[in-house]
Structure formats: structure tokens, C-alpha cells
Design a protein around this nucleic acid. Structure first.
Lengths: 193, 193, 193, 193
DNA sequence: AATGAATGAGTATTCATTCAT
DNA sequence: TATGAATGAATACTCATTCAT
């Protein structure tokens, strides 16, 4: 299994660095290979083509993402607390890895539609996690029974994503994790009183 | 002034069609010229370069967007009503122009960071419109006094944007304008009871 | 029509020179462009791709070949005389253009099967010319009535081709046209007495 | 001596299969190794490089070819009969091994000039066999005394080769050995009456 | 003897932009 | 104004060969 060999992760980590520092369109395979400390050809022993590097990158990183967040929300009793954990850790994980934040929020979105559809496939796991929290919240009576799950999920993900993107676009200037509580409050209570 | 000459809009409209039908990376200048019924070189009498076409496209379309929405909210008394008008018309305008929806939600996001920063510049007018509604809502006591304007704006824009993108990605299948009221309720009241 | 523009022939002639002097596998498009005195991209205004240059090359040169030979045999009364003209001019035309001889006998044969099939398509015109001579010879009673046209054509073409290839492989040392009469005699009378 | 070890022939036979089924340019060393049931590196214990495989392949196969034909013509009294034996067995041997026919007539000719010169070196043995038959025919008075040996040899080899190539190119459709007698007659008597 | 993971050189093609007419 | 022929920079991927085990 290629995915477990050290060079697989080595190349993916190199790709994150190269894309973050040079931009998507300046991230040539040869640059990634150099950063990973392998020959150009070695890349193709572990990945089918350049696109495969990017999909695998997203799969690996998003996989860890989902895993960690699932772990954090496990012990929590209320859906609201779980949502807070999700927002907090989403912000925390990305603020701890600036390169990854730049890659996921800015650079990878420049990829073509085909690649973006595959990335969306990976994202589905995360969106389903949000859905589970929403359903639990409704069942427990924490959230409104008339909630449209899809729209609520789009609000949650859209708000988180827009906040992170805005943070990245503003050159990572403000402190992201400290926004989690306020964002959480907005998602639960909205703008109203 | 180039912007008022017929060929200026002719080329921009051609660009929308070509990008929507071929995708961002298959929207060559020569294709846009052909669609517009002019020679390749003529493009450069009206636009500095290809990027300038895309920025102008966004400026023109977003300008109309803001204008119409401002008009619609003018007479409304409450901030909540104004927000509803904004969501409703945002959805309505895009659902009336599928080509434009595809271009703004999917294709134009594939542009490089530099171009996206310039697009964000144009977006600021729209975001300031949201800010004005929020401030009015706080001042009138409709919205929570402790609202973080920036975060609230990011929630509103993020939610609207995510909803539209999801609609476009699902091949424009569901009815977008009919979601406005529910989205509005979510933005005002959140997920909670 | 691209085929009539001067650059079309200019590029083909450059290809003959470059392939003859560098070999098929060292005949890069950029080398051909340089030899033709045009930019790399200009090649693609006149040819679909590299393969298209080679096919067009063969078509153009073989077209001239067939045309000239048809002209030469026109006035001849007997099939035997016509066959002599064919051999003589085949040898003469190639011995007058060493570059072309090298390209058709050695270099172009290194192309892949697909390209060779297309080249064979072009060759058919020449083989049909041979067939017409054979049929006339049989009808006029010059050639044996029991002649198998296909085999006879294969003998004629095979013998001519092998002779030319051998001449090219021996570095064009001996005088090719002077062999025509002897080759002609062999084709008519065979090895026997 | 490498040539006598089983893996030497094993690799050569694998090469014939792989080249025949995949084409010259798709016959990678790794594919040949896999077909032969050895590791890539093992190839290089038996052959200097890839070219060496192809030359050895040709040497081995052509060696058997010459051996068998020499055996067949040994007892024959006349040069004409010997020539018939040569044509017949040339056709028979190749029609019995389609893979080999494809490799020698089509695929190996795509090799570069250098390799083809080396292959010609191997062919010389076969051409000398033809020469010996021709000389015997002249001495015995069967063939014309004024025969140019080189040209006659080129006619014989060129005709046989063109016939086989044509057979391979027509997907081995017609029966090759049954053409031998007619080809033989053509070579002895030519097209004339 | 045998393995197979690693190497790294080499090239066709696209397309935004220019400028002579 | 308008044209469109010409330009030329820039890059992913393959595969013969090696060598540590």
C-alpha cells in the first residue's frame, strides 16, 4: 500500500509547502519533488499524476481533520457544545498550519472543475458530520424543529469557510481561534436579539 | 470612455457566455472574440488584458447587482426586511441568469490569487451594503447590540454564497428564490429555538 | 487553403533537412521551426501536430513524384518502356535529392505504426501507377498473361525500394540512375536466360 | 556463456511476444521482464542494454532461419530449385510464427538507424546465401551470365521482403506459402513472356 | 544470481499579446 | 478603428538503467 510508505506523506507535505509558498499555478512537479527530496520520477511511483497528488493531499488532510473533530465532540453532551467544538477545532487546526490554510482556502480552489468535484466528494464526510450534529440538536430539542437541515448546514459551513478565507486573505492577521465562540453564538442565535 | 461603447458590453457578455459554456480554463481570448463577433486584436482596444475583461465583467455585473438591491431595500423600514430583500434579490438575480451564476460561483473562482483579490475589491461594495443593514439593525434594536459586525457580515455573505454555490453545483435543480425566507430566518434566529 | 501558402512548403522543406541531418528522433519541432525561420507556434498555424508535418511531407513529395513519373511515361508506347521510365525517374528523383532519399528510405520508417499506415495510404497512388503499367503490358501482350498483378507489383516496388535503401545505407556511394536499365531488365526477364 | 543459459532465450522469447502484441514503442524493458517472469534488473545480467536484446533477438531468430534454409537447399541440384526452397521456407517459417513475422517486418523497422545498421549486419549472412545460389546458377548456366549479382540479390530479397510485409500489413489474411511458386517464377522469368 | 525502488533527462503544444496593414 | 498572422515562453510525464540489498 503506497499510502503508508513514508515517501507518500513526504511528497504530500512537500506539495503543501510548495503550493502555499509559490501558488497553485507555480507549483510544478519538479519543485514538489525537490522540496520532498526525491527525483521527479519518484513522484510517479506514488501518484498517478499531478492531480492525484492534490486529491490525495486533500483526502489525507481532511481525513485527519474529520478524525480529530470527531474525537473532540465525542464526549460532549449537547449538540450546541459539539458545534462549538467543531468551530473551535476547525479554526484551531487551520490556524496551527498556515501553509495548509492557504492551500485549502485559496490555492486549491484554482484547480479545474473536475478536480474540484473530487475535492467536494471528500468534503462530503465533513458536511455529514455537521448534519449529524444538527439532527442530534433537533432530536434533543436544542435546535428548532423546523430547521431545514441542508440550509442550516450551508449556513454553518459557509460561515466557517468565509471566516477562514477572510482570515487568510487578510494575511492571517487576526487571531482565528478566538473568533470561535462568537461565530458559534451567531450560528445558534443568529443576528436577532 | 471605452465603458460606454457598445463593443465593451458586447465583449463582456461574450465572455460570460464563453466562460459559462466552456469553463474558465477553456475560455481563450480568441473564443471570446469570436463569440463577440470581433477580431482578437479588437479586444485589446477595449481591455488592457484578459484579466481586465474578467474584472470588468465582475464590476459591471456586481454594479447592477448592488444597484438593484439598494433600490429594493430603500423603502423598507426594518433592517430585517432589508436583509430579506437582499437575500431574495441575490437569489432572484442569479436564478434569472444561469450563465452569470455559473461564472461567478464556479468559474471565476479558478482565477489566480491576484485576480481574486481584485474581485474582492469589487465585492467590498456589496459587503458594505450588508454592513449598513447590520448597523441599522443594531441601532434600531432589532439585532443584538453585542453583534460583531465583521463576523455577522461573514455569516450572511458566507451563507448566501454557500447556498448559491450548492445550487449551481447541483445543476440548478432546486428553486433558489424559494429558499430566501428560510435562509433569512436562519440568519436572524440561528439554529436555536 | 494552408497548403498553398509559402510557409507551408517552407516548413516541409525545413523538416526534410532537419530529419535528414539529425535523424527522425532528433528532429524536434523547435529545430524544424528554426530551420524554417519561423516561431515554434507558427508551425501549428499550418499543421495540426508534428505527425501532420510528416504526413504532409510525404504527401507533397510523393505527389510530385507520381506527377513527374506519370508525365514521363505518357508518351511511351510500350509497357516495358513505361516501366523503364518509372525505374529511371524513381532513381533520378531520389538521387537528385539526397536529403529526401534519406528521409523516405531510413528516417520516416522509424515512425510509429499509425503514421506508417497513413504513409502507406499515400503510397497507394504510386502502387496503382505500377498496376496500370502491368495491366497495359498484359493487354498488349508484352507481359505474361498469367502474371499475378499483386505479386508482380510487389516485385517491382520491392526491388526498386531495396535498391534505393541499399544505396542510401551505403552512404550514396554508387551511381543510382545508372542502375535503372539493369534493374529494368531484371524485372522484365528475371534471373533466367 | 550467457547465450546458453535458459533465461537468455526466455527473455528473447518474451521480447518477441511483447513487441508483437504491444508494438515496438510500447515494448518497455519492464514489460519484457514481466513477460519473461524475471525482475527488471535481471535483464541486465544477460544483455548489455535494450538494444542488445533486439540485436540478439534478430541474431538468434535469423540464425535458425539461415540454418534451416541451408539444410533444405543442400540436396537440391539446380540453383533454381534452391531458390524455390529459399522462397518457400522463408514464407513457411514466417507464416508459422506470426509474432516473429510482425516483429521482423513491422516493429523492428521502427528502430533507429544505428540499430538497423546492426540488424543489416546480421542480414548479411542471409544475403550471402542468396549470392551463393546466384553464383551457382550463373556457373551452371541456369542464370544469365550478365547478371549483376548485387542487383539480382536486391531483387530477390526485395521481392520476398515486400511480399511478406504486404502479407503482415494485410493482417496475415492470405496464404503466404502458396505464393512461393509464383514468386519464384517471377524471380526467374520476370514479367516478360 | 536476482531483485525492484529510485533516478532524471528530454519535448510537443497552447494561447495571451503584438503590430504591420 | 479594426484586423488576424505571428510570436515564444513554459511544463508534466516516461522509461532505460543502476545499485544496495
Amino acid at each position: 500500500m503506497k499510502r503508508n510508505k513514508p515517501k507518500f506523506r513526504q511528497i504530500i507535505d512537500a506539495a503543501v509547502v510548495v503550493i502555499a509558498e509559490n501558488g497553485y499555478h507555480q507549483a510544478q512537479v519538479s519543485k514538489i519533488a525537490k522540496q520532498a527530496g526525491v527525483a521527479d520520477g519518484t513522484i510517479y511511483l506514488y501518484f498517478k499524476n499531478k492531480e492525484d497528488i492534490l486529491i490525495s493531499l486533500f483526502q489525507e488532510k481532511m481525513g485527519v481533520f474529520i478524525e480529530i473533530i470527531e474525537e473532540k465532540i465525542e464526549g460532549k453532551d449537547s449538540a450546541a457544545e459539539k458545534l462549538l467544538m467543531l468551530v473551535e477545532n476547525h479554526f484551531k487546526l487551520l490556524s496551527e498550519d498556515h501553509h495548509l490554510a492557504i492551500v485549502t482556502q485559496l490555492e486549491l480552489r484554482q484547480s479545474n472543475k473536475e478536480l474540484r468535484l473530487k475535492i467536494n466528494e471528500v468534503l462530503k464526510g465533513y458536511l455529514m458530520l455537521i448534519d449529524r450534529i444538527l439532527i442530534e440538536g433537533i432530536e434533543k430539542g436544542e435546535f428548532s424543529g423546523s430547521l431545514d437541515i441542508r440550509l442550516a448546514r450551508q449556513m454553518i459551513f459557509g460561515t466557517i469557510d468565509e471566516t477562514v478565507t477572510s482570515w487568510v486573505m487578510n494575511d492571517l492577521k487576526f487571531d482565528l481561534p478566538s473568533q470561535a465562540e462568537k461565530v458559534h453564538r451567531l450560528l445558534i442565535c443568529g443576528c436577532g436579539k
